[in-house]
Amino acid sequence: MEPKLIAGNWKMHGTLAECIALASALREKARNQTERGCEFVVFPPTHLLVPVGHVIAGTGIGLGGQDCHVARFGPYTGNVSAAMLRDVGCRYVIVGHSERRGPHGETDGQVRSKAQAGIREGITPIVCVGETTEDYAAGRATSVISRQLIASVPDTAMPERIAVAYEPIWAIGASSSATIDHIGNIHSAIRSTLGGIFGRDKALAIRILYGGAVGPESAPRILQTVDVDGVLVGRASLNAAHFLSLGAPSN
C-alpha cells in the first residue's frame, strides 16, 4: 500500500524570508524524526518553489505546485505550466481547488485538462472536489462530488499517477472539520465513483485525501478512517511542528 500522503498547501502566504524560515524548520525537524510513516509534500507559492526546494532537498519532503496551465509553453501571462513545475523538482500539482473553481470560475473541463497536463509531464495531479454550503444543506454532496469526479478526472490516466482530495467548501478555514461519519461516507462514495471510472480494483490505487480544518488534534482520527489515504491542509502546514505531526498515530 502507498503511504498516507500529507500535503501542505501554503497558498498565498509568506515572504521569501518567511518561507525560507518555514522550510528550514521543516528540514531541522525532519532530520530529528527517526521514522515517518507518511509521505509529506509542501506546495509553496510558485515564485518560491526553487528556494524552498533547495532548503528541503534531501529531507524526503516533496515539492508541489499549487496550480498549472493546460499548455506546456506560450503567451499566457501570469501562468505556470506543468513542464515548468517538473523542471524545478515538483512531483505533484493541485488542480481544481475550490479557491480556483469558485473565484476564478474554473470548470470541470478545465480541471480535467490541467490534470492531463500534469500527467503528461510525469507529475501527479491532486484533483480537488467538494460541495458548497448550499449543496451540503440540501443533501446534494454525493451527487455533486460524483459529477465533479466524472468530469474532472482523466479516465485515461494510470490510477497510481493520480490523487483526489475531498474538500467540503463549508469546512475550509473553519474551526472544526466535518464529522468522521461524513468524511467516511463521502470518501466511500468517491471510491465507488472512481471504481465506475477505472474499475473497482484499479480505483483502490488512487489515494483520496481529506481537506478542511485539519489539525494535529483531528488528523490521526481522520487518517484512520476507511478510504482516507491522506490529508490536504492549509493553515496547519504553515507551522513545521504541526505539519510534521499530522502523520503521527493517535494515542
Rank of each mutant, 00 (worst) to 15 (best):
G234N: 15
D227Y: 00
V233S: 00
Y210L: 11
A219S: 11
I197M: 12
I197G: 08
V226Q: 12
G196F: 09
A213L: 06
K202S: 10
V231C: 05
V214C: 08
S192M: 03
T225V: 08
A236L: 04
S218I: 10
R235T: 02
G212P: 06
A219D: 10
P220L: 15
V214S: 01
G212C: 04
V231S: 15
F198I: 02
G215Q: 04
A236I: 08
R200W: 12
R235M: 07
L194D: 06
A236K: 00
V226A: 15
G215R: 09
R235W: 03
V214E: 02
I197Q: 02
G234R: 14
I222T: 01
I208M: 01
R207C: 04
D227P: 01
G211Q: 00
D227N: 07
R235A: 00
V231M: 13
T225R: 05
V226L: 13
D201S: 13
D229W: 01
S218H: 14
A203N: 14
I222H: 02
G211S: 07
I222Y: 01
R200D: 15
R221C: 10
S192V: 04
A236Q: 04
K202H: 15
G199M: 11
T193A: 06
A219M: 05
R221T: 12
Y210F: 13
V233T: 02
A219L: 05
V214K: 00
G230D: 02
G230T: 04
G196A: 13
V233L: 04
S192K: 09
D201Q: 15
L204A: 14
P216Q: 05
R221A: 11
A213T: 01
